[in-house]
Amino acid sequence: MFRDWGVVGEGSRLRRSGPLVAPVVWGGLAVAWRLWCPLAREPGLPMRVATSVVFLTVGIGLLLGARGGLVRELARVRAVAEAAQQVLLRPPAARIDGLAVAAGQLSAARGAVVGGDLYEAVATPYGVRIVIGDVRGHGLAALGTVVALLGSFREAAHDEAELADVLRRLERALGRHLCERAREEHPVAEEFVTLLLLEIGPDGELRVLDCGHPGPYRIGGRCVEPVPVGDPLPPLGSFPLPADLVPYTAPRLLPGETLVLHTDGAEEARDHRGRFFPLPAVLAGAAREAPAELVRQVHTALLRHTGGRLADDVALLVVRNDRVRVPAQPAEPGLRRTRPTPSPH
């Protein structure tokens, strides 16, 4: 379909200037009143008051017209930005291979839906693989690094049989991104990413690689406990990964249990008295909630605790094991072991 982009651009300019037409007309009438209306030139207090009222009305009209146009333009720009950011940090599917999943983020940057935190969960032939990370800094400046890492993870999670190789792919993607930035910006500020890479097997087995990131919490009933993640590796980008990468095997995620992954902005958030956010206590209070409701309650408690003034981005990813435990089946009659008949001798 052919489109005349000159005509489109002209139409866009006309739409943007539309809100200013009425104030301009008001201004023209006010000038005409002052210059050519005989009443406006008559001396005396009543005429001066009338002239002042006319110009005050015109001024208010100009301000309201300009403000309305700017508000509408800002709403359009924000809608486009939110759509782009939702594509970048898309919400995970509600169910992934028998797991109930929910995620959400609060950005410390005003006007931003996403910032320097990242998360993703995908079903692969090797199990459900999850990544959550925190780019140094926050806000829109960190989005380039988030894009590079999420794009690499979404491919590597399916391509690589070993979790360690997925992490090496992420390290290479971050290195390429930093090299590209170094060519565009000189010098580039030091940048690193704390990262937690996790794999949930079909039987609930947890395998973890932790690059300086806070460990997750496990919720079983109303009991909330930290999940061991082994000795942490350095954050990505600060030092090269060691040659020998062995994922840590954590206790299994049993049916009915919930795993809560988070960034450090959750536990480091403070109120006006300097008190840290009590994340384990809030999780215990919402332990019986579905993952999506649990995320909502934690976000609400965070905003209440900080008075709506976050110092850092906060990301949460909640996974509940909804797989049904298969009971042990009795042996078939023909295969049932019997005691040997004692010999008569």
Rank of each mutant, 00 (worst) to 15 (best):
L64R: 13
A100C: 06
L70I: 12
G28E: 09
A22L: 15
A32F: 08
R90P: 00
Q105M: 11
L99E: 06
G44K: 09
G111I: 01
S107M: 03
L99F: 09
R41Y: 00
A103S: 11
P91F: 09
P91A: 12
G18D: 04
L62K: 00
E82T: 14
Q86S: 15
R90D: 07
E42K: 15
G68N: 05
G115M: 05
V113E: 15
V25Q: 03
W26I: 14
Q105S: 15
G65M: 04
L35R: 14
R13I: 06
R110W: 07
L14Y: 07
W26Y: 13
A30C: 05
R95Y: 13
L29M: 07
R41M: 01
F55S: 06
F55D: 07
L39W: 12
Q85D: 06
A66Y: 06
R16E: 14
A103K: 05
G61W: 05
L74H: 13
A100K: 10
R67G: 03
C37I: 02
R78Y: 02
V87W: 01
G11N: 12
A94T: 15
V49L: 13
G28A: 14
G104H: 03
V49M: 08
G116P: 02
T51G: 15
A40H: 03
R16Y: 11
R34H: 11
D97V: 12
L20V: 05
L20E: 02
V24R: 12
A22P: 14
G18W: 06
L45A: 10
P23C: 00
L29G: 04
L20A: 08
A81L: 08
V80D: 12
D97S: 15
G28T: 13
R78T: 12
A81E: 03
S12Q: 14
L45D: 08
L20H: 06
P46Y: 02
A30N: 02
L99S: 00
L62A: 12
R48W: 03
G18T: 04
A102S: 10
A100M: 05
V21A: 10
L20Y: 01
V31G: 11
G116Q: 04
G44V: 02
R78V: 06
L39I: 09
P46H: 02
A84N: 07
A102Y: 10
